[in-house]
């Protein structure tokens, strides 16, 4: 059958006013100035969330107990990037890690530095490399480096 013309439509998320949970991340960012990681712990089951969560997903109760979390941890998984988000090739491969920090039951993701792609492995010990000048923003955590 014959090809037909196209007409446009849009979904304008720019017109939306989003409110999303931010207490946990705001508190975490504040503490990051001191190179500390602050999450919270469920007083019932002990699960530790980073950033802090307002409820425990396992116990379905509101939780408030702060928990300090180590900046050392273990690689849970990783990937080596060869293309950017648009699929264009990168100049050099980029290591990205998913890390479970000691004392936390959740994980965070970040770039891996000072490690060759072929040396990265699951179970590898790493630590956060903090920025010298910290401003209370996620860039304060520069990367993960070998422990």
């Amino acid at each position: 059958m014959e090809e037909t013309r196209q007409v446009q439509g849009t979904w304008d998320l720019s017109t939306f006013k989003f409110r999303i949970e931010g207490e946990g991340i705001k508190n975490m960012l504040k503490e990051m100035k001191e190179a500390k990681l602050l999450g919270n712990r469920c007083h019932k089951c002990g699960t530790v969330y980073l950033p802090a969560n307002f409820y425990c997903r396992k116990c379905h109760i509101a939780i408030h107990e702060p928990a300090e979390i180590s900046d050392h941890g273990e690689v849970m998984s990783y990937t080596i990037g060869y293309a950017d988000v648009r699929g264009n090739p990168l100049d050099e491969p980029r290591v990205s890690l998913m890390v479970k920090l000691d004392g936390s039951d959740t994980w965070i993701m970040g770039a891996g530095e000072d490690m060759k792609p072929e040396d990265v492995h699951i179970g590898m010990r790493v630590k956060i490399k903090w920025a010298d000048q910290r401003v209370g923003n996620l860039q304060d955590m520069e990367s993960f480096i070998p422990e």
Partner: peptide
């Protein structure tokens, strides 16, 4: 409502469970 979808969901479901004396 000064809330998020997550908070409203939790508030309503936790309230319902408490009303009925049940858990998730």
């Amino acid at each position: 409502l000064v809330t998020t979808r997550e908070r409203l969901t939790f508030e309503l479901t936790r309230g319902l469970f408490d009303d009925l004396g049940i858990e998730r």
